[in-house]
Amino acid sequence: MHRTFPLADALSVTTPKMLSHRHMDGLYELLDHMTGQDLFTHQLGAAADACKPALIEQHPFLADLQPPDNADQADLLAWLVEAERVHGEQVTVQPLTNWGRRDPIEDACDQVGAERVFLPFATDAPDKIAIQANRQAAAEKLTNLKAALARLGDAARLAARQMPKPSPANGVNLDKPEPSS
């Protein structure tokens, strides 16, 4: 299913510059759409590498549309405005057909080594007993907190029922505002 995206988002994938007006949000949204996956930050590079040729295939003009070298922020913005004038501010983007869902944990292990990927709640961790004890303690705290909140709610409802209703009989006139001092 195709979707429309700002040209600047597509250029953030097909050029070496971050041109999206929405910055990382624009990049995530485009790459998530194209891959059909909610990507993690460390997966963006591989996703962009896979999406760049598809974007150029879908919109061949992107192949030659490159910002000037050594352009400052003002020059980049001027270049982008001209590119949007010539090619339109939006492009229609189709998802990739050849992207296989990638596990973000496996990708992290592949990138930095499994020994450097910390998973605090992994079920196969060496200190599994400590993790389970921490989970149990957290569950008990959550149960106690829920009970305390329920008691607090009961006390608030009881106090509200016992409060006198505002009326002229107890000195509250609902028709006139109180004079300010």
Results as ranks from 00 to 15, higher is better:
residue 113 G to H: 06
residue 171 G to R: 10
residue 87 H to C: 09
residue 145 L to Y: 07
residue 45 G to R: 15
residue 122 A to F: 15
residue 167 S to T: 12
residue 147 A to P: 08
residue 43 Q to V: 07
residue 35 T to E: 09
residue 21 H to C: 09
residue 168 P to A: 01
residue 5 F to D: 02
residue 135 R to N: 10
residue 118 F to D: 15
residue 162 Q to L: 13
residue 95 P to G: 06
residue 47 A to M: 09
residue 24 M to A: 07
residue 154 D to C: 11
residue 162 Q to V: 05
residue 180 S to K: 15
residue 148 A to N: 14
residue 176 K to C: 07
residue 143 T to Q: 07
residue 129 I to N: 08
residue 179 P to D: 08
residue 122 A to T: 04
residue 47 A to C: 03
residue 73 Q to C: 10
residue 48 A to L: 06
residue 85 R to K: 13
residue 107 D to F: 06
residue 178 E to M: 12
residue 48 A to D: 03
residue 9 D to Y: 09
residue 147 A to Q: 14
residue 80 L to A: 10
residue 10 A to G: 01
residue 165 K to S: 11
residue 114 A to F: 09
residue 131 I to L: 12
residue 168 P to T: 02
residue 67 P to N: 06
residue 92 T to L: 04
residue 175 D to R: 14
residue 43 Q to L: 12
residue 157 R to T: 10
residue 93 V to S: 00
residue 73 Q to K: 15
residue 159 A to C: 11
residue 11 L to D: 04
residue 73 Q to M: 05
residue 92 T to C: 00
residue 125 A to F: 04
residue 45 G to L: 02
residue 71 A to K: 00
residue 132 Q to T: 10
residue 180 S to W: 11
residue 148 A to W: 02
residue 136 Q to T: 11
residue 86 V to Y: 01
residue 67 P to M: 10
residue 119 L to V: 11
residue 94 Q to M: 11
residue 14 T to M: 01
residue 14 T to S: 05
residue 50 A to G: 08
residue 26 G to Y: 05
residue 77 L to E: 00
residue 174 L to T: 04
residue 26 G to V: 02
residue 113 G to P: 07
residue 122 A to I: 09
residue 87 H to T: 09
residue 51 C to D: 01
residue 129 I to F: 14
residue 166 P to M: 08
residue 16 P to A: 09
residue 33 H to N: 13
residue 101 R to E: 04
residue 93 V to R: 05
residue 48 A to V: 13
residue 146 K to Q: 08
residue 21 H to L: 05
residue 134 N to Y: 10
residue 132 Q to S: 04
residue 66 Q to I: 07
residue 153 G to C: 13
residue 28 Y to A: 00
residue 172 V to C: 05
residue 10 A to I: 00
residue 162 Q to R: 15
residue 9 D to S: 10
residue 88 G to Q: 06
residue 74 A to W: 02
residue 77 L to W: 01
residue 157 R to W: 00
residue 131 I to P: 11
residue 125 A to I: 08
residue 28 Y to R: 05
residue 178 E to F: 15
residue 126 P to T: 06
residue 31 L to P: 00
residue 170 N to S: 13
residue 126 P to W: 11
residue 45 G to T: 15
residue 1 M to R: 14
residue 3 R to T: 03
residue 89 E to Q: 14
residue 8 A to W: 00
residue 153 G to Y: 06
residue 110 D to P: 00
residue 45 G to I: 13
residue 163 M to I: 09
residue 109 C to Y: 03
residue 149 L to W: 02
residue 91 V to E: 13
residue 31 L to Q: 04
residue 4 T to W: 03
residue 43 Q to M: 11
residue 123 T to K: 14
residue 104 P to K: 08
residue 172 V to K: 06
residue 4 T to V: 10
residue 2 H to M: 14
residue 132 Q to M: 07
residue 136 Q to N: 06
residue 14 T to F: 01
residue 81 V to W: 07
residue 44 L to E: 07
residue 149 L to N: 13
residue 7 L to H: 12
residue 48 A to E: 15
